[in-house]
Design a protein around this nucleic acid. Structure first.
Length: 357
DNA sequence: TACATTTGACCACT
DNA sequence: AGTGGTCAAATGTA
């Protein structure tokens, strides 16, 4: 069931999957070194792809898969300096549940207190991104000036906290070193299911990736299923639901799933089949995948809650939800083009796959 | 009217 | 006491 998000998978298993992918990547890098460079003179369309090109393509898809695994706050974990994914201890978010005896209707200020709760057993996933957009719809609930930091920290919760009890939260803050980027820390997991955000996210991914060159596949992991879609196909499909349905294929539901289902390449052509992909990445197919929506967003920097709050008087807001930190339900393709950096340290593909072209 | 943001207050933790 | 996270009243916009 694509885009389903119920039934989580332990972060440790996701971490194991990512680590396996890292090993696959390293192996491919080594193998790539033994291959001669692709011939320059010939047009690639007039000859079968050489081994180096196939490997490059495989690497690209692998990177995409890893990006997906780590590209959402849904997955608790971090990437260490070596690029290895490590899961962060998972626990229920104590902040989500209203404390017993607390009245929500009362106008008196009583509460379960706040306090510095970061780093105390809560799952977190920190990353740096050039935009606050990540495909989810967030609602800002606070902002604080942080000690020894020139930029305030903004606090967001998932818009669907109330209607679906989604406990996902995030904190954003401009990077001190590079104010054009944001440090974004995610807490909790998205348990919401909102087609107006998730599926357009996929479209956004596709459209954005389409202008990005080699990585224009989207892979959306949901419980028991993976959606792999090619951007050009999605663009042609028009309706997100049908696109997702047509392009969905199960991964893990039948041992690596749905043999014969194509994985589409950036060129719009079949890249490989699931069984081939499974063989390529080893036993990744045995790893369960929790809900994850590939982060993607319009390129235009919408300074959601950080810079905007300087303007007093609640200037930012506005009932249409287009304000700070929100993600439009129907992002226009023209504004797309940003792909949230996955796994924190592998935003730059060249850095991640450091072999000579 | 509904919904989002702003912002001061509150509270837990160190 | 200082700091950071969250609440909720006030406020703004469509």
């Amino acid at each position: 069931m694509p885009f389903s998000s119920e039934g989580g998978v332990p972060a440790e298993r996701v971490a194991a999957a990512v680590n396996d992918l890292v090993e696959v990547r390293d192996g491919l890098v080594r193998l790539r070194g033994f291959l001669p460079p692709p011939p320059q003179a010939e047009q690639s369309s007039s000859r079968p792809p050489c081994a180096a090109e196939l490997m490059d393509a495989t690497m690209s898809k692998l990177m995409s898969a890893m990006a997906t695994l780590g590209g959402s706050g849904d997955i608790a974990g971090e990437v260490d300096a070596a690029g290895r994914w490590t899961s962060v201890a998972e626990s229920a978010d104590p902040m989500v549940v209203r404390r017993e005896g607390e009245s929500s209707a009362g106008r008196t200020r009583r509460r379960r207190g706040g306090g510095s709760r970061s780093g105390r057993g809560r799952s977190s996933n920190k990353r740096v991104a050039a935009t606050l957009e990540d495909g989810h719809v967030w609602r800002k609930y606070g902002q604080k000036d942080i000690q020894n930091s020139p930029y305030p920290r903004s606090y967001y919760r998932c818009t669907h906290k109330l209607d679906q009890g989604c406990g996902a939260r995030r904190q954003t803050q401009r990077c001190e070193a590079d104010p054009s980027n944001y440090d974004i820390t995610y807490y909790g997991e998205h348990t919401c299911r909102d087609p107006s955000t998730i599926i357009p996210t996929a479209i956004a991914n596709a459209a954005g990736a389409a202008s990005d060159g080699p990585n224009n596949n989207i892979i959306s992991f949901a419980t028991g299923g993976v959606v792999v879609a090619n951007s050009s196909r999605l663009a042609r499909e028009g309706t997100t639901t049908s696109a997702a349905t047509q392009l969905s294929s199960s991964w893990g539901t039948s041992g690596g799933g749905g043999g014969g289902d194509d994985v589409f390449s950036s060129s719009g052509e079949r890249f490989m089949q699931w069984d081939e992909l499974a063989a390529a990445v080893g036993h990744v197919s045995s790893v369960g995948v929790t809900s994850s929506t590939v982060g993607s967003a319009p390129a235009a920097e919408n300074d959601g809650g950080n810079g905007d709050t300087a303007a007093g008087g609640g200037g930012g807001g506005g009932g249409d939800g287009g304000g700070a930190g929100s993600f439009p339900s129907s992002p226009s393709a023209g504004s797309l083009g940003f792909v949230v950096g996955p796994l924190g340290s592998i935003e730059d593909v060249d850095d991640f796959f450091p072999f000579d072209p």
